[in-house]
Amino acid sequence: MERGSDEAPNKSCKDVLKSKSIFGGKVVIFGGDFRQILPVIRKGSRQQIVNASLCPSYIWYHCRVLRLIRNLRLTIGQPSADIEETKKFSKWPIGIGERKVGGPNEGTTKIELSDDLLIEQCDDTIIKIIQFVYPDILNSSQDPTYFQQRGLLASTNEVIHEINDHLLEFIPGDPVKYLSSAPAAKSDYTDGNADPTLYSTEILNGLKISGLPNHKLILKVSVPVMLLRNFNQKRAYAITLGFTLFL
């Protein structure tokens, strides 16, 4: 959350409502975890990134922090033993972020992981993870709620694509390959004599951009997909792009 994007509406509300109070006396709710969502400062240092967040802003001194103390999604209808285990685990990553786990440190320390968080030695760790997160996928792939209750996170898109390819092999059916079709448009900043090899089809098809599906998309019948983006907003009925495996 960037402080400039919050201080500017504050000044506008004061001018419109002709009030000296924060946001013109209106109640404004900020949501999110500041430890996870930091402003992006291009080539910025740690001090610059922290200074650009909401906490150093003068608005922060007028805020009241409200904390959620109960995870309703993971506790309703669950046995008491599972609820206690969920509470215990939720405190562990927070303790790491607050440097309460692993002893005093200045950014580097050793943290002991529980045995239930570790992957046993195997030939293919990705297959092991899939079998743990998606047990009995062969018989449960037709259930729409099966994938809604499970998910996998990864640090890079390459790992996600590799997991998708492995997961697709577990789902029965014949795969169907779809290829994108998007010719390169002439740049407005060139005289039309640019080298066409700079924007060749091979280069464009090899791009892997966050938020967009790859050039080659392989699907099967009953495989869940998720619409990422509709590029043609004026023709909302024309869905032009954007399906990927929903994990």
Results as ranks from 00 to 15, higher is better:
9 P>D: 13
13 C>I: 03
17 L>F: 00
18 K>D: 01
19 S>A: 02
22 I>S: 02
26 K>G: 01
29 I>Y: 13
30 F>A: 10
30 F>I: 10
31 G>W: 07
32 G>N: 10
34 F>K: 05
37 I>W: 12
39 P>I: 09
40 V>N: 04
40 V>G: 08
46 R>E: 15
46 R>S: 13
50 V>E: 12
51 N>Q: 06
52 A>G: 05
60 W>A: 03
60 W>V: 04
61 Y>S: 13
64 R>A: 14
64 R>Q: 15
64 R>T: 15
67 R>H: 14
73 R>V: 07
78 Q>E: 11
83 I>C: 07
84 E>K: 07
84 E>A: 10
85 E>V: 12
86 T>I: 14
95 G>N: 14
96 I>R: 08
102 G>H: 12
102 G>L: 14
109 T>M: 11
109 T>C: 09
110 K>D: 15
114 S>T: 10
119 I>D: 08
122 C>I: 00
127 I>F: 01
127 I>L: 03
131 Q>S: 03
131 Q>E: 05
132 F>H: 05
134 Y>G: 00
140 S>R: 05
145 T>Q: 03
152 L>F: 02
154 A>Q: 04
156 T>Q: 11
160 I>Y: 04
168 L>S: 01
181 S>A: 06
182 A>G: 12
183 P>L: 06
183 P>E: 07
187 S>Y: 06
189 Y>H: 07
191 D>W: 14
193 N>F: 15
197 T>N: 12
199 Y>L: 09
199 Y>K: 13
201 T>I: 14
204 L>N: 08
210 S>G: 09
212 L>A: 04
214 N>D: 12
217 L>W: 04
218 I>H: 03
220 K>C: 01
221 V>S: 11
222 S>Q: 06
223 V>K: 01
228 L>F: 02
230 N>F: 03
235 R>D: 15
239 I>D: 05
240 T>S: 09
246 F>P: 00
